[in-house]
Nucleic acid binder design. Structure first.
Lengths: 105, 105
DNA sequence: AATGTAGTTAACGAATTCATTAACTATGGA
DNA sequence: TCCATAGTTAATGAATTCGTTAACTACATT
């Protein structure tokens, strides 16, 4: 849990997660969306993987990365459930989220 | 939003939020729950306030801190809703695209 | 006015983060 | 085998974070 929040502290890493939400991407394809160097990207990916937020799959020459399903949301929910006033906002937001999702179909 | 994630990156600050969930506390009461110095605490509180997660209310000699209702949960899940694997049809479509890609090699 | 308590600000140092370049491993193709 | 591409590891340096102590402001009590 510690590691998840550390991972999310970086704007670049949050963007990577957003890109991976679209679907699986190779390291190179992710890197093409940023300015920084390959080693920098490699570090970010290692941190996200260490947090359990993404997983890697090496196929031939390429390394594919994808989100670990539900991991992010589960962690955030589990933590927020402890920290937030549970009676009101969490439930309300939960409903709102379900509605946004439904709308997206 | 940036500031919210920066604020959450610190274990101490996440604990402070958890304490404030119980209800309003003075800076001193919060400080009593930690080892570190008063200036250190003051810095954490400033960061949490800057992120809009807590608000302060000076009454006489004391400064009371409390959670800004809904702010944390709203920010967190508004963001997560964009980044997380969307459930249902969208997700299936995403997978299908990944498979087409894999097949194309 | 004098003193004590609550809290912040300032200045500084240690540790960590985040990026870089250079060198390496591994796969694929000529 | 030779070379190009994909990616990681190592070493390094700049910037930021996080803590400290010392000094300050504000309020309350005597």
């Amino acid at each position: 849990m510690e590691r998840v929040f550390e991972a999310l502290a970086s704007t670049a890493r949050r963007k990577i997660l957003a890109y991976l939400n679209q679907g699986e991407l190779t390291a190179g394809e992710i890197g093409a969306r940023f300015e920084f160097s390959k080693p920098a990207l490699s570090g970010h990916l290692r941190i996200l993987e260490g947090a359990g937020l993404i997983e890697r799959d090496k196929r031939g020459q390429f390394v594919y990365f994808r989100l670990v399903p539900d991991k992010l949301v589960n962690t955030l929910f589990a933590w927020a459930a402890e920290v937030c006033p549970t009676a009101g906002p969490l439930k309300r937001e939960s409903r709102a989220r379900a509605q946004r999702k439904a709308k997206a179909r």
